[in-house]
């Protein structure tokens, strides 16, 4: 199954407008910085939630990412660099959060609610499956989780994932295949034929 793959190259806004916004934010214009935040906040928060599986920690991480952007905006060269810089920083901030957490962070992310209201049994099964998927993702090593989230959930190409994780494509492919196999084994063991 092929999915729509987002890419760094896909413009989030007209490149000229984005360039102007970045230039104004570099000059210290607060409104332009807020616009840049609003353009990227959803993607940054979503990535943090998927990496940390904890809503509160993800919100804190997303704020930290934008605080770092505010400090380093002058070193971001242009509009093409901003996206990769933000996602790389999000991954780094999340890795720091996981490292700093003295105890295991609980999964408090609520799986996507089933819209099948007419069939409560099916809805409950789908929610349970969602919980198991989150548990399977949490069972992966941090590197495998990062690679799976970026490739299979965020839809970046292997090359882009390698760029974000500052790794090689070969290593990322290995992490992706190992992660997918581990998740499959976990879910087959828990759900059996229901998967």
């Amino acid at each position: 199954m092929q999915m729509a793959i987002p890419s760094f190259d896909r413009p989030i806004l007209d490149p000229d407008v984005l360039r102007q916004l970045i230039r104004a934010a570099k000059a210290g214009e607060a409104e332009s910085f807020e616009t840049l935040v609003s353009l990227h906040e959803r993607r940054v928060l979503r990535l943090a939630q998927r990496l940390l599986l904890n809503c509160e920690a993800a919100r804190d991480a997303a704020q930290d990412v934008f605080i770092r952007l505010h400090k380093k905006i002058r070193s971001v060269a242009d509009d093409k660099e901003l996206g990769p810089w933000l996602y790389r920083t999000t991954v780094n901030v999340c890795v720091d959060v996981m490292r700093r957490a003295k105890q295991e962070m609980p999964i408090d992310l609520v799986p996507e609610l089933a819209d099948d209201c007419d069939n409560p049994e099916r809805s409950a099964a789908r929610i349970e499956q969602g919980r198991l998927v989150l548990a399977a993702l949490k069972a992966l090593s941090p590197k495998e989780r990062q690679a799976i989230v970026l490739r299979d959930l965020e839809g970046y190409s292997t090359a882009e994932v390698a760029k974000i994780l500052a790794s090689s494509e070969t290593t990322v492919r290995s992490q992706i295949s190992t992660g997918r196999l581990k998740m499959k084994h976990f879910l087959v063991a828990k759900l059996g034929t229901e998967l």
């Binding site: 199954m1 999915m3 959803r42 928060l45 979503r46 939630q49 998927r50 992310l109 609520v110 799986p111 996507e112 609610l113 789908r126 499956q129 969602g130 998927v133 989150l134 399977a136 993702l137 799976i148 299979d152 959930l153 997918r180 998740m183 499959k184 879910l187 087959v188 998967l195």
Partner: peptide, 13 residues
Amino acid sequence: RAQAALRDAFAEP
């Protein structure tokens, strides 16, 4: 199927 379950599990923020 595992990949599809992974994609279905996450809601948007």
